[in-house]
Design a protein around this nucleic acid. Structure first.
Lengths: 100, 100
DNA sequence: TTAACATATGAATATCTTTTCATATGTTCA
DNA sequence: TGAACATATGAAAAGATATTCATATGTTAA
């Protein structure tokens, strides 16, 4: 019990902070929530959240850069989907805490 | 499969983003890492991380406010410890992703 | 090839967060 | 009580981030 978490070196730790930063924004969390239903294109996400196309696009890029979402072009539109099994688990873990 | 995450309403979602924000800072993550070994006072954490007493104190307050750490006074010093079983699990989940 | 559409992107702005510095508060012990 | 120590705190400075706006890029269909 109470064993120290095994965090190899500080580079990993900075990467980890960067990952959590991505989850620490409600716009991105709402996008991930929307995508947990299945893939959607940029427009429909923007409409669903009532936000600007540009804002969503910027945030989707951050999700993509962090390998949390993946993009697929189909004609004029680009469809995004969640790209990681961890996403839902990480969010659910957080929920356990928030809903204590 | 691919069931939508059950996020009751947007207030919870904002709380969740706030929680992840706490994990999204390397100083706080390093503090949590240090505390995962057991309780420590402010000074020893500051020394271990090579950072200012004041910086650590400010960040400990954020951890405390978010119910992730707890404080206990013993004489002149104040000992902090992790206050939540989720903390390690959330960090480990994140690690799974970062170390893919 | 051009018009219409979907998405991406760079730069500017606005907002938020962390750190630092100076100092206040609380505790012990002589 | 006062000196020494540990921690907390407010305000300022420095740094980081999200959003907006204007426009560029890429795609389709006429």
């Amino acid at each position: 019990m109470d064993k120290k978490l095994n965090l190899p070196d500080s580079e990993v730790l900075y990467d980890l902070a960067d990952l959590f930063k991505v989850f620490g924004d409600s716009t991105r969390l709402r996008i991930m929530h929307a995508l947990s239903e299945g893939e959607k294109n940029v427009q429909s996400i923007a409409e669903e959240l009532g936000m600007d196309q540009s804002t969503i696009s910027h945030q989707l890029r951050i999700l993509r850069d962090n390998k949390l979402a993946r993009a697929r072009r189909d004609g004029k539109q680009i469809y995004y989907s969640l790209d990681d099994d961890h996403v839902k688990k990480i969010i659910e873990m957080g929920l356990d805490h928030v809903l204590e």
